[in-house]
Computed example of a mutant assay.
Amino acid sequence: MTAFVHLHRGDAPLIVAMPHTGTDLAGLDARFVSPWRARRDADWHIDRLYAFAADLGATIVRTTVSRSVIDANRDPSGASLYPGQATTELCPTTTFDGEPLYAGPARDEAEIARRRAAFFDPYHAAIAAEIARLRAAHPRIVLYDAHSIRSRIPRLFDGELPQFNIGTNGDATCDPALTAAVSTACTADQIVNGRFRGGWTTRHYGRPASGIHAIQMELAIRGYAPEPAAPDETNWPPAFDPAFAAPLTATLRNVLNACLDFAK
């Protein structure tokens, strides 16, 4: 384990992975246009929103490094997960809105390799180790990849994103019964394998035939935090208020219990 990987170990057949909660710029602050811009696209407060998962016996793995330093949910080879669609890279050069991240020259291949070894590889080593540990104790386990995003980002998708965006890469990463159970636990404001079909984490680890079922949940931030129409440095990120988030938290508790019921 490194200082950039936080692990809470549980014994239930459920791992909650959080690749984008980090805001640590790893000493690169001066290279970015601004620290605020470099942190803006984080999955804000997801670790607090899912804190209850520990009470369910889940294992929680998260990285504290900003996705602007390296995105722990991208293919490390650099291949796009969404060919033909706008996205960001393993070590992003732009924000979700297409704004430049770097004030000067962007990172080169040697720098990408350094960041992968320092931040990406330890995070995924932790996930792989926990999968092996729990799979040895359970016939099947669920890897739940937890995310959130602004409700409106025209560069990435049209209109307003549904509240719940379930990704299984067309049920390649998990049994359809798990997809159905998670979908049933959500409200009607949802889509399965829409704009977000599951990132590298779900696609890499999901092996239903081997008892490893991976599913991604991308939440629209509006469901758990007051989301401004136009985020700027005066209003972003929105504060986390447990009372505001309570209705969505209750739904997410049902979602994770559905994952546990499937695994058990």
Rank of each mutant, 00 (worst) to 15 (best):
A181E: 06
L252N: 00
P242Q: 14
P238D: 06
G211Q: 06
G199K: 07
E233S: 12
S210C: 08
N193A: 00
A214P: 01
P208T: 04
G223N: 10
D189R: 08
T202V: 13
F244T: 13
L248W: 12
G206A: 06
A172N: 11
P231E: 05
T202F: 02
F240I: 01
I212C: 05
A209K: 13
R222K: 14
V182I: 13
Q190K: 15
D241P: 00
D189L: 06
Q190L: 14
R203D: 00
V182Y: 07
E218Q: 07
H204M: 01
P208G: 08
T234C: 11
D171C: 12
T184W: 12
F240Q: 08
E227M: 07
A250C: 11
W236H: 07
N254P: 12
C186K: 06
P231L: 11
V182N: 05
P226I: 09
C174M: 00
G223I: 09
P226G: 03
R197C: 13
N254M: 14
F196D: 02
A245G: 07
I221M: 15
I221D: 08
T173C: 13
V182M: 05
N254V: 11
L219E: 02
A180E: 10
E218K: 02
D232A: 01
P208Y: 08
G170P: 05
H204V: 01
A239G: 14
G194E: 01
D189F: 09
S210V: 00
P238L: 03
A180F: 09
I191P: 00
I221V: 15
F240G: 02
Q190H: 14
A246V: 09
W200H: 12
E233Q: 12
G194K: 04
R195C: 08
